[in-house]
Design a protein around this nucleic acid. Sequence first.
DNA 1: TTGTTATCTCACCGCTCAAT
DNA 2: ATTGAGCGGTGAGATAACAA
Length: 310
Amino acid sequence: MKIDRLVAIIMVLMERDVIGASELADMFEVSLRTIYRDIEAIGKAGIPIVSSTGPGGGVGIMDSYKMEKRLFSASDITTLLIGLGHIKSSFPGDKLVNTLAKVRGMIPQEEYKQIEMKANQIKIDLSPWYGKGVLPQILDTVRIALDTQRVIRFQYITRKRIESTREVEPCRLLLKDMNWYLQGYCRIHQEYRTFKLIRMKHVQLLEEAYELHNIPMEQFDHHGFPNDVKEVVRLRVDDEIWEDMIAFFGDESLVPDGDRHYIVTTRLPVEEATARLLIGYCDHCVCLEPESMRKLIKELLRRTSVLYFD
DNA sequence: TTGTTATCTCACCGCTCAAT
DNA sequence: ATTGAGCGGTGAGATAACAA
């Protein structure tokens, strides 16, 4: 932790001629006192630190000691800042504060304002509008498990609401379609599985460590879930929901059908979850085929109507 | 020239936490 | 229980820029 911050401070000092200790304290979210201690440690390590008092004063590294480090272009740094900013919103912790400070330290002083403005033009924030939810805690635990190669145990609720205890050797975190997933080796089922984080609860980090093994990524890179049997589904939708349809199934799946309507042809699992999704679009979407899907939708609508009509 | 302000330097003290 | 690392807070002092 401390060593990370020291390295990050050196990176910042390498780029800036002089920087105030209070600015460094803000940057690294520590006190002024700690920054002065860090500067002293850097000096003791043999890096020639120069300091100046008075307004506009601060600390810096002797010019003769600095080296060329323009390995990154302005656009590289902007991309890094956007990415790190997003990760920081999902994973709280010191490490990313230090990493962000290091990357900011690479920005040449004359381009600082412009690069910061560009980085702020794109904001990726997956946190909910209301409340904080449990996702950040789960994400943090999984991240630590990946970092320290430790097994995690949790209660998992499947899509069919079957709850069971799982012990998993995490392989990777996946963000797909605005949802976080954990992909790893399930010790209970003795195979690689994908778990939706929001359906995990009571996530515990076990003491037990696991050996890194060759991860069969091809098992994880399929589209959808291995248990899904997909069938060709044809929908007739109106232009109220064309945007959602393109987002779900892609532009090529939509064929114009008369005035303000489209035919969507795609492959979906024929199950209640799909029926619920389609019913959610009310009269903007009708399933043309297969018959099995239509039957499911009709049954769901019948059950729903019982709740509202005599 | 003097006072104000901003900044660094130094020396304390006390708190928390992990290791022993 | 003790020890050490890391950190935060505070106060006194030195220095430099700037304005009156």
